[in-house]
Amino acid sequence: MGDRAIIGQYWPAESLVHAMDPRVKFLLSLGLMAAVFCAATPASLAVAALFVAAFYAASRIPLLQAVRALAPLLVLVVLTALLNVLFVQGGTVYFEFGIICISEKGIQSAAFIGCRLLLLLMGMSLLTLTTTTLDITAAFERLLAPAARIGVPAHELGMILGIALRFLPQFMTELGVIYRAQVSRGAHFNVNPFKGGVSTLTALMVPLFASAFRHAETLSAAMEARCYHGGAGRTRLVPLRLTWRDGVGTAAVLAMAAAIIIVNFL
């Protein structure tokens, strides 16, 4: 409990993709997803897959790590594919039993939608695999900056996102400790969740919330002690700067979109 990799957890490495500006990566990953959505034929989807594979190669993320990051989401892919097999009908019927009918079109559409979903997820996790949460929140904040003019608290939203992400693993660990402590006192958490389950759950949730409030108080005191006063006039130790890598990345994603659209018409 607690030690499992979180979906798309940052994988430190030195690569072209890692060194890109997080703002550009953020936008490009959106662009990449849009491009994958444009793929309408198996051939263009194959082109998209080639590009995604190339991006992963450029990011120097071990294949195993990429798969592990995606593993919790594969259920989603499999489920979507299954639904397609069952509900899309047409063409040769391979198997029929009661209301279950597996046909040629169903299998085709399951394979197509499954692959497309997988590519989308891979595109998304490439961002989180190659970018620290700190950089992602910074990018998020910068990209929201124009909205700050019309009163959107961009800096605060970024800060909230950053703190939430930072404390997720912390609370996972603490929940594990509290769980073991209460089990040591004879608590049963897995016997019958419907009978008396709520009362034993309080033994987990109350200490966890108490600890969350304690962390919030300590953190706000620590931030004030370091003269934190919101985003105005705040500088960065490592300012975000565009480099040639960002140009290369943008060109690659544009090339991918173009290739997909061209192959669509072939």
Partner: peptide, 11 residues
């Protein structure tokens, strides 16, 4: 078994 900082497990 009494864990470290056991007061954090009061509920």
């Amino acid at each position: 078994l009494v864990f470290q900082y056991p007061e954090n497990q009061l509920f």
